[in-house]
Write a protein that binds this DNA or RNA. Structure first.
Length: 461
RNA sequence: GGCUCGAUGGCAGAGUGGUUAUGCAGCGGCCUGCAAAGCCGUGUACGCCGGUUCGACUCCGGCUCGAGCCUCCA
């Protein structure tokens, strides 16, 4: 398998440090609000990667953290007059619900920052002891100048960073690039008693502490959004390397591209932030997932009404093929039937668009093949390939029924029965009238040799 | 200003130094009572200008346009 490594800027053959146990750490959310569609991309992308890794290696440990102490959380908690845990737990639950709707499997470990304050103390102390960090004015800061490798991940030199700095440099910093490991809390702010006074962790240190605690000092894969390359991952890398005596922190750095909305970056000021929970009111979670996997993970992805409609229609085609195979039994045994071209696409830096193309090739074969044994294998191949992408796992009829209630379904079935009777009597006018009635309710009929099927066709919104 | 990345047919979106991406939408045919679904067929697509080459959408240079990052935004 080849993966594009941000640090080397090349696609590299993936060689884990220990083939018996692969480790992956992905930066999770800071839980201060509901997740938007951009927040969904990393968990979906790395969900596919974790599925692929589990197929290749006997043991994979995938950790995705929850950042539950942060100034934005503090502000929300203060505004509502509640403990920060009320805020963080509320939005953690929402995050889990959103991701479940998108077919994202839970990671093996989901560490929370507030459960790792002691680990954070330890790593900060290690950095101080090794002269990579210093105390100043109640803060503990990482000294950028103490680490020659600083900037290697994001391809920036400290000088350039200084030149472009667009913030005021705090007076207690030795160097403008130095960043906070620990900062003091006022009495009304959440805080922990530390060797450096009561305070709270800085932004980057938690990932260094938690990844080491759960996965060891060197990770095989570390992922996150493109925007995290700098400063977050650059700083994490500096902290971890320096705290661990120069040991390599991450073998492969992976970063996904952004999701734009109608060609614009999502931002609160533009007012174009699309929350997953809102999208789910009108778009099936699987269609959202399809959109996210329809572009290569490193490329920017534009979200608009068209791509959603196209995703839904594309899934109609795939589920249509599977529905034709509804009565075809799966092959005996647990052999793998996934086409090699599908696997090859995913092994080439997670080329999900190419993998989807292979899935459509299977659908075409499913629609033309007549041999029962062949059909059985195609069905298994589609389901197994779909599972690697986290798609096509629901009953096809369930997909086509959309959000219809059981009452709707009973009513639709009754009308179809009436129409079948009319057709049997060659009363085409009545048959067409019933079909029109159903069409007005967005129910589209498909007459086949073995009966009439139906599906919900959502109007283009 | 610095760094990074892009520009593919109506839309989305892979890929390759010379041969069909794929899907959606459209058009024609088959099938169908008529449809729908499906199958078959169908599109002189690779931002502009140079260069390398027998040959470039694919490599190199320049240009134009666009996107992201430059201290807490996935």
């Amino acid at each position: 398998m080849k993966l594009y490594n941000t640090e080397t800027k090349t696609k590299q053959e993936f060689v884990p440090q220990n083939p018996d146990h692969v480790t992956m750490y992905v930066c999770g959310p800071t839980v201060y609000g509901y997740s938007h569609i951009g927040n969904a991309r990393p968990p979906v992308v790395f969900d596919v990667l974790s599925r692929l890794l589990r197929r290749l290696y006997p043991r994979v440990t995938y950790a995705r953290n929850i950042t539950d102490i942060d100034d934005k959380i503090n502000k929300s908690a203060a505004d509502e007059g509640v403990d920060i845990s009320v805020i963080s737990e509320r939005y953690t639950r929402a995050y889990h619900a959103d991701l479940e709707a998108l077919g994202v499997l839970p990671p093996d470990i989901e560490p929370k920052v507030t459960d790792h304050i002691n680990e954070i103390f330890q790593i900060i102390q290690q950095l101080i002891d090794a002269d990579h960090a210093y105390e100043a004015d109640g803060h503990v800061l990482f000294s950028v100048n103490s680490y020659a490798g600083y900037g290697e991940l994001s391809k920036r030199s400290p000088d350039e960073l200084l030149a472009g700095a667009r913030v005021d440099v705090a007076s207690y910093k030795r160097d403008a690039g130095d960043f906070v490991l620990w900062k003091p809390s006022t009495d009304d702010q959440p805080g922990w008693h530390s060797p450096w006074g009561r305070g709270r962790p800085g932004w980057h240190i938690e990932c260094s502490a938690m990844s080491a605690a759960h996965l060891g000092t060197t990770l095989d894969i570390h992922g996150g959004g493109h925007d995290l390359i700098f400063p977050h991952h650059e700083n994490e890398r500096a902290q971890s390397v320096c705290a661990h005596g120069g040991k390599i922190f991450v073998k492969y750095w992976l970063h996904n591209g952004f999701v734009n909305v109608d060609k614009e970056k999502m931002s609160k000021s533009v007012g174009n932030v699309l929350l997953i929970r809102d999208l789910l009111d009108s778009v099936p979670g699987e269609a959202i997932r399809y959109v996210l996997l329809g572009a290569h993970y490193r490329a920017p992805l534009d979200w608009n009404d068209d791509v959603v409609t196209q995703a839904r229609n594309s899934l109609d085609r795939l589920y249509g093929a599977l529905r034709k195979l509804a009565d075809v039994p799966l092959p005996e045994g647990d052999h793998e039937h996934v086409p090699s071209a599908f696997i090859a696409a995913l092994h080439d830096d997670l080329n999900t668009p190419q993998a989807l193309a292979e899935l459509f090739a299977l659908a075409r074969r499913a629609n033309s093949e007549t041999d029962p044994v062949g059909l059985s294998k195609i069905k298994a191949a589609m389901l197994q390939a779909g599972e690697l992408l986290g798609l096509l796992q629901q009953d096809p009829q369930h997909w086509f029924a959309g959000t219809s209630s059981t009452d709707d379904v009973a009513e639709i079935d009754a009308l179809i029965e009436q129409r079948l009777a009319a057709r049997a009597a060659q009363d085409w006018a009545l048959a067409d009238q019933i079909r029109d009635e159903l069409a007005a309710r967005h129910v589209v009929l498909e007459d086949g040799a073995d009966g009439t099927r139906w599906r919900i066709e959502k109007p283009v919104s």
